[in-house]
Design a protein around this nucleic acid. Sequence first.
DNA 1: TTGAAAGCGCTAACAC
DNA 2: GTGTTAGCGCTTTCAA
Lengths: 338, 338
Amino acid sequence: MATIRDVAKKAGVSVTTVSRALNGYSDVNEKTREKIKMIAQELNYSPSLLARSLVMKKTKTIGLLVSGLRIEGSKDNFTFEVLCGVNDCAGELGYELVLISTDSKKQQEKTYNQLCKERKVEGVILQGIKTDDPYLDEVLKSDIPCILIDIPIESDSVGYVTTDNKGGAQTAVQHLSDLGHKHIGMINGHSQAFVSRERLAGYQAALKKNDIPFNKDYVINGAFLEETAEVETTKLLKQHPEITALFCASDLMAMGAMRAAKKMGKTLPNDLSVVGYDNIILSAYSTPSLTTIAQSRYKLGFEATTLLTNMLEGKAEEKNKVLQTTFIKRESSTENHG
Amino acid sequence: MATIRDVAKKAGVSVTTVSRALNGYSDVNEKTREKIKMIAQELNYSPSLLARSLVMKKTKTIGLLVSGLRIEGSKDNFTFEVLCGVNDCAGELGYELVLISTDSKKQQEKTYNQLCKERKVEGVILQGIKTDDPYLDEVLKSDIPCILIDIPIESDSVGYVTTDNKGGAQTAVQHLSDLGHKHIGMINGHSQAFVSRERLAGYQAALKKNDIPFNKDYVINGAFLEETAEVETTKLLKQHPEITALFCASDLMAMGAMRAAKKMGKTLPNDLSVVGYDNIILSAYSTPSLTTIAQSRYKLGFEATTLLTNMLEGKAEEKNKVLQTTFIKRESSTENHG
DNA sequence: TTGAAAGCGCTAACAC
DNA sequence: GTGTTAGCGCTTTCAA
């Protein structure tokens, strides 16, 4: 591995000059610069980002900290699409990206701060964390700039990006109401998710607006899991056969819910209208295809990175961003025939 | 940020001792070690991996170099699942993971060697690269240890991991033949993919074994894209209405092929049997669900990492691994009714 | 069992 | 314009 010294020696100049030449400083003779560039190329030299970071105390690196990076994630692709967004934005802005994944086991070994300081990431984007995760406290106490995805908390060093979950949910339920449904159930995620609370609020708001009384027995948790949603939906529909429509807090749970309904002998969407949330790939391919609220995970990642780098570079802008959702009508919702 | 010096000062010892104490060397008084550990914790000290790597000339970091990390990848999840496998294995073995993504634009700016040397990755896993990509030459010339995914090339510093593509394809086509199909088309990927060549070989082998003549007009390329496959399938089926079965080199293309058939008024699987390759999530949810050859992208990533770290640690083992596939029967294939 | 000193590859004051 | 020097935070000889 050629170092800066090798280049300097061969060019007959000092390492300083090489450094300056290669980094585009103006106070260096153009001829010298050319020569140095030539030699650098000859020697196949590339500067060590390590050494540079050490002396500059800047790594130009951000970390994407994912809690629970698991293969199951491929069903909704949340993490992957966020990653794409982060990667694209970071790339554009010249930041390196390191992927930090943790799970409860790892978290016992290393604190959030350790994880970040070790690798000298300048800032962090946090995805997939529950509101009762101990890391969240650490994040808020830490002075490492951080953007939370889908957790609307803000502090000096912490911002967030999320979508208009309440609005999205409201749109979904309004749609069902517009179709004439009066008995609308909800399959929510879990209480440790902000988005679940918001989506529930949206559900309630829509009911209220349409003078439909809120019945708490109509709302169950599916843990954002397809299987759990299937099981819970079966229970719900058995207990409340008057339900003709379901709003699910995720498309994946909607898949489970639809399967449950089918297994009970219901015909979709005639016997049961279902609206999901997310617009995952599957939702366009299922039978019936799923009416849903689309949110762009990619944008979530991209905007998170924009916010984070703004923070890092001291640009005094907003530290949070709320993205809008889009309603997508497909086959799984239809007029109330009940 | 507390440094090793801060700890040393507070503990009243030299930095050398702190280093030794914290890194578990035996030649340090246990009492001193305890004291140092205490103080380190107090100061919230975590050693700078940067500085350590610089002096040790070891980063314990591997890079996952992905060519074309794009949101479209969420349809087949190839990259994501490989990433999960790499991440899990790297985590187990104590390696850091950096994600390096390139595209043709970036490649003009930086060579493969630059990309890797800059970040001081000790080894690389390469995914998503075509056989005519200029990076591939560089990889083979470079002395940076590298594992290629799905490109069976080996050299001193290069190994690979792939699946038994020929065998998988053969199984798929044998299945169609067993169902009585005589006119079996193939939607292949593109010629710049080794897997395409292998799968074609498997297709031909199965035909031969069953005394079905090979007709090159029956094989078309769908570029591994759903839309292209749809367009090309339409042409193929119009030109050769005698075809009753299709083997597709990817599930995604199988989706396109099925859509094409449906649009032509065919009933699936009665008018046309389709077998895919990959076992992506979608294949279980489509209508009809897709018979396919399953390959584990996760294992691909995991095994790649195992091979790579073995190389890095000088363990003289095989530098390649071929994983087996699994045949998965679903609804899209049935007996020849033609 | 501990410490002093050198050095990893680089950048940045400060001279000249 | 260019070189000298110091130092980023750490590990590792070599002495003591």
